[in-house]
Computed example of a mutant assay.
Amino acid sequence: MTQQTPDQYRVFGNPIEHSRSPDIHHIFAEKSQQSIDYQKQLVDIEDFSNAVSGFIHQGGKGANVTVPFKEQALIIADELTERASLAGAVNTLSFREGKIFGDNTDGEGLVQDLIANNVILKQSRILLLGAGGAARGVLLPLLAQTPHSIVVANRTVSKAEILCQHFADKRLSACGFQDLEQQQFDVIINATSASLSGSLPPIPISLISQNVVCYDMVYGKDLTPFLRWAKENGAIKVIDGLGMLVGQAAVSFEVWRGIAPEVRSVIDSLRASLK
């Protein structure tokens, strides 16, 4: 009996060396008895479209897309999901029937991680820090959880206002970081890149209390600067973005294979390897 060739998947990015996606998807596949081969591929900045075409030509079934190609992936897709279209970016490509299908699983990964950590989103007051691609990518899934309100705060207020107008939802409003004094929230989500450079979003200490949940989309071996600051100032529940990383991968896996993989043990395994 001949062994069946595993279905081929990729993650395209630049840089890509640090990507944990192959580890995550191979664990998903092993646990759900799916035969896949998932590799990371470094792509020249000018060569994304050719790299995708070449992979399709080799019989590739799907791909994840990371920085800096998510907007380019949006452009080359023949069909988009609503969440990809509104996010203005694609992180999951599927190749079938001669077409490229684009999806964005980042926001769903975030929402699923918040729910797994027993964070109540329904009727909650959410503060989203930042108005770039990371913030835009999670707004639709967050709104789907029927929060009371989402305030998008950004250094440049006009950018936050444009983002809110794009979604045209009365629960959304925009402000500058300096306008947050006197406001209160149930959940604060850091979608800025501040933690990557070891800095903090410039928000007032008055936002932090023992009842507010603080979430950072970034993760690392230790608490991010934002989460460390929140904890030092009284926040009890602080969550980093490792679960979002595994969660968005799980949604991609389900898009491709029709199976929703179990994520908790994968998060625990990655967490242990970070230590």
Rank of each mutant, 00 (worst) to 15 (best):
T192I: 08
D240H: 08
G109V: 06
L245F: 01
H148Y: 12
I100D: 00
E46N: 11
E181V: 11
L129T: 11
P201M: 03
R83G: 02
H166W: 15
K231V: 09
L129H: 05
F167C: 10
K275S: 12
Q178S: 08
I267Y: 14
V119L: 13
Y9S: 08
V111A: 03
V212Q: 09
G220V: 07
Q3D: 10
Q182L: 11
D44S: 15
Y38K: 09
S53E: 13
D186K: 12
L139N: 04
R10L: 14
Q58E: 05
L163T: 09
N233T: 15
E262P: 12
P147G: 11
L121H: 02
I208S: 10
V111H: 06
Q8F: 13
K31M: 06
L270E: 00
F101S: 06
K159S: 06
G59L: 01
A160Y: 02
I259M: 10
L127M: 04
L110I: 08
S19K: 00
A77Y: 04
G13S: 08
F95M: 01
I56W: 08
G198F: 00
N211G: 07
H166Q: 14
V213H: 04
F12R: 08
P6L: 04
K231T: 12
R136G: 07
I162V: 13
S85H: 11
A249P: 01
L242C: 08
L80Y: 03
L172C: 03
F185T: 15
I162S: 14
S49V: 13
I208C: 13
D44W: 12
R171Y: 02
A63N: 06
H57W: 13
K70D: 06
M244C: 02
R10H: 10
P22W: 09
N233P: 03
A235N: 02
P15T: 05
G198A: 03
N14P: 14
R271Y: 01
V11D: 04
I189G: 03
I100M: 01
K70F: 01
R125C: 04
L172T: 02
L196Q: 12
G60E: 07
I45D: 12
E108C: 07
G133K: 02
F185N: 10
R96N: 11
L163P: 09
S94D: 12
V65F: 00
Q145K: 00
Q3C: 14
